[in-house]
């Protein structure tokens, strides 16, 4: 029973990260109808930037800020310099270009930092706080929940309450009309990519210290897991991404807790397969848009 409680909290903590990363995928999907397969690699690049800054300054928090800033910049750069020029004749084009980015970014990181795992620290203890003799969750888990909750809140405010959010939604839904109404649609697209990339960077900062450490491939599995979460929620739906992320986090926590952690990737595959074949609309999406 203790173990179940522990696994539940651990799963929710991981789920919060998957939710954030899935949100980033949904952001770009809504803005550009692209699944950004390079998001994991982009997020890792931001985490490496944080590593360097923390090394230089000795401060976790300056590094943390650097990760978010780098995330914004990488996102904007990828949209401005690459994605904007991809032809739409074939829907596979964007996927293939994003995969090219994965190869490129990971290789550049490997050249700069090497392919070994670098140590990655947390700003708070990861030892679980015991409540009535039962280890529940750690200070770091609380930090993760807080960060993701703040993120969700800020994004919700941005999109529903600000004029920039209104512009971003309009540009995604009706680009041509939005231009006629004075919206800088290209700028909104860049902003969407930048935001999503920063959100991905945040997720990477939160999750990497809880796994093996920093490595060019550190987010590969997180990407697929979060993609699964986003698909469960329906790629179009931010609340779906959050719920999907939490659900996937829980399921994987139980799987790895009771069956062994090596089974996790197989469980992700099985989960994705089941969702794709059984619930083609996602749980939260109004449309059946699997045939994108």
């Amino acid at each position: 029973m203790d173990r179940f409680v522990f696994l539940t909290f651990d799963g929710l903590s991981n789920g919060a990260v998957y939710a954030a990363f899935a949100l980033a995928l949904v952001l770009i999907w809504r803005a550009a109808r692209v699944v950004n397969f390079a998001q994991g690699a982009m997020a890792v690049a931001a985490a490496y930037a944080a590593y360097s800054v923390t090394q230089a300054t000795g401060s976790y928090w300056i590094g943390f800020a650097a990760a978010l800033g780098t995330g914004l910049m990488i996102g904007a750069l990828v949209e401005r310099a690459v994605m904007r020029f991809v032809g739409h004749a074939n829907p596979l084009n964007e996927v293939i270009v994003a995969l090219g980015l994965v190869l490129f970014i990971q290789a550049v990181l490997g050249m700069l930092y090497g392919n070994e795992f670098l140590p990655s620290h947390t700003p708070f203890s990861r030892n679980a706080i015991e409540v009535g003799g039962v280890p529940l969750l750690s200070r770091y888990d609380l930090f993760v929940f807080g960060a993701v909750a703040a993120l969700v809140l800020l994004l919700a405010l941005l999109f529903t309450k600000t004029s920039t959010g209104l512009r971003m939604r309009a540009a995604a839904f009706a680009p041509e009309v939005s231009r006629l109404l004075g919206v800088n649609v290209g700028g909104m697209l860049t902003l969407g990519w930048a935001l999503a990339s920063a959100v991905g960077a945040l997720a990477a900062m939160l999750v990497i210290p809880t796994e093996l450490g920093l490595n060019p491939h550190a987010m590969d599995l997180v990407f697929v897991t979060s993609f699964t979460a986003a698909v469960i929620g329906g790629l179009d739906s931010p609340p779906g991404a959050v719920t999907g992320g939490m659900a996937v986090g829980l399921i994987l926590s139980y799987v790895s807790g009771y069956l062994g952690s090596s089974v996790t990737p197989i469980a992700v595959l099985a989960l994705l397969l089941i969702v794709l074949l059984v619930r083609p609309g996602g749980l939260f999406s109004a449309t059946v848009a699997r045939q994108a």
């Binding site: 004029s163 209104l166 512009r167 939604r169 309009a170 939005s178 109404l181 004075g182 919206v183």
Partner: peptide
């Protein structure tokens, strides 16, 4: 929102 979009 449509209306506001006209003059943001």
């Amino acid at each position: 929102e449509n209306l506001r979009l006209g003059g943001l």
